[in-house]
């Protein structure tokens, strides 16, 4: 990042819309900051309910991220390293949650894992109730976050290419050894940034959760749901919690920023 690149200049007018864009993103944050009641800030973000919501958010997001890694890494490898009929269509479908409104995701999950859903009877027979449980929160978060990990890892896999893997195989390494000792280490930066994005997306997940999981303190009321509730009853606390979420998100983005690695 420290190397000076030689470049031709950009048109002067381009700074204006660029600046407007930056303002559009940053101004609302400033607006929120201006409403923070600093004297009560610490009290507001450390109430019992706030700590419960933050704790639940961090725990469910961590589990969701782990699930994203467990499921998303194989998905990315299959998409990047194999070819089969319908792969392009499958890739688009897998990425769908990225562009769907989360509430649509919530409805889809409801009709899949809900009592009356596709798998409802089977889950019921197993004694598993998904809706209104923390499992539902994790499912919703994983559903919306998975594509972020898959996209960023598939990109990393494609740009890493297969040449190292070919060499490794010719040295006698089985596909599993190649995957473990060559592929994964090579794309580790991509995996880390993908997992971080997935974590951030999980932390911010709201629509699918409230549609599918409901809202109950300690069980399903994550930080965004808690903020949504506070917004009505205690706007000061909502602002304080929002700021907390912004800080967490900024830390996470800083961690995942592309180009930080290498």
């Amino acid at each position: 990042m420290t190397t000076q690149q030689r470049q031709v200049g950009v048109p002067a007018w381009i700074y204006l819309p660029a600046l407007l864009g930056a303002v559009l993103v940053l101004l609302p944050l400033a607006g929120m900051l201006s409403r923070v009641d600093w004297s009560r800030f610490v009290d507001l973000v450390t109430t019992e309910s706030a700590r419960t919501a933050l704790g639940l958010s961090l725990r469910t997001s961590a589990v969701s991220t782990a699930l994203c890694v467990l499921l998303g890494v194989p998905m990315a490898v299959v998409l990047a390293r194999t070819s089969f009929p319908g792969q392009g269509v499958l890739r688009s479908l897998v990425l769908l949650p990225m562009v769907l409104p989360p509430v649509v995701g919530g409805i889809a999950l409801l009709y899949t894992f809900g009592r009356k859903g596709l798998l409802g009877a089977e889950l019921d027979a197993l004694g598993v109730q998904v809706a209104f449980s923390t499992i539902a929160v994790v499912l919703a978060q994983t559903f919306v976050s998975l594509p972020f990990l898959v996209v960023s890892l598939e990109g990393a896999l494609r740009s890493a290419g297969q040449r190292y893997e070919v060499v490794a195989a010719s040295l006698g390494a089985s596909p599993t050894t190649v995957f473990r000792r060559v592929t994964l280490p090579l794309v580790l930066p991509g995996l880390v940034s993908g997992a971080t994005l997935a974590f951030a997306r999980s932390l911010g997940e709201f629509g699918a959760t409230i549609t599918f999981a409901g809202s109950l303190e300690g069980t399903t009321r994550t930080l965004p749901l808690y903020i949504y509730q506070l917004r009505v009853t205690d706007p000061d606390a909502a602002v304080a919690m929002s700021l907390l979420l912004v800080v967490v998100a900024v830390v996470v983005i800083g961690f995942a920023r592309p180009g930080r690695t290498g």
């Binding site: 809706a131 209104f132 999981a213 409901g214 809202s215 069980t219 009321r221 949504y228 509730q229």
Partner: peptide, 9 residues
């Protein structure tokens, strides 16, 4: 006393 599974907005 109710013990709801969810408290909606």
């Amino acid at each position: 006393t109710f013990s709801p599974v969810s408290e909606e907005q």
